[in-house]
Amino acid sequence: MNSEHAIITDQLTKSFGSFTAVDHISFEVKRGEIFGFLGANGAGKTTAMRMLCGLSKPTSGSATIAGFDIYKDTEKIKTKIGYMSQKFSLYEDLTVKENIRFFGGIYGLSNKALKLQTNKLIDTLGLESQSGKLVASLPLGWKQKLAFSVAVIHEPSIVFLDEPTGGVDPITRRQFWDLIYEAAQRGITIFVTTHYMDEAEYCDRVSMMVDGKIAALDSPEKLKLKYNVESMDDVFYHLARAAKRGE
């Protein structure tokens, strides 16, 4: 167990029948790092992330999350992580406040902490006027920001974000990344998948998944240097072109 690392995976694999979605991936994520997890659609990003969150059992290989074993301590891991899925997954028929209270509550926040967190969160998001409204009535960008805030309400060591800014306008995306930076500054490790290469530039390090394998892993600067290209966009093209899996 290495206290410097939030995530360590070794030969982690997930197969569905004869199809290997995630093929022996090994990588480490440092504590407090913003780690970008890139790859084309169907490269295996979501499957890998679901294994790390304890939503899906690996076929083989090992991993530790926040120092806990992915097989034995699934429930302990769950106290240490936050997760925001691709699909919006707060309760649309509850109000903003009720969602915050509910998730804070089941993460075991005390009544006092709940009150404090709720007010702080609504304040940071500028949702004062909306706090009593059903989440269903919020615009997508606000929903996403709320979902992120709820995912870190219990101050986890790591938060997993699966395409958090999909379908969101550029301004909101910028605000969303402000939230991410803020969380990272508080010491939360960020593990994020994205299709926006400008967002990849914001990450400390990124990995590129191609056909279930990790094809490259380094800081955006070094990757650009390595492939002798101008932008992360070009790095992505360069690597993803080698993919054999059809879309």
């Binding site: 997760y83 899925s85 699909k87 997954s89 998730f103």
Partner: peptide
């Protein structure tokens, strides 16, 4: 169906 159960399943509930 709506996916909220995933959010529940990543909690230590």
């Amino acid at each position: 169906e709506v996916g909220t159960i995933e959010q529940i399943n990543v909690t230590p509930i």
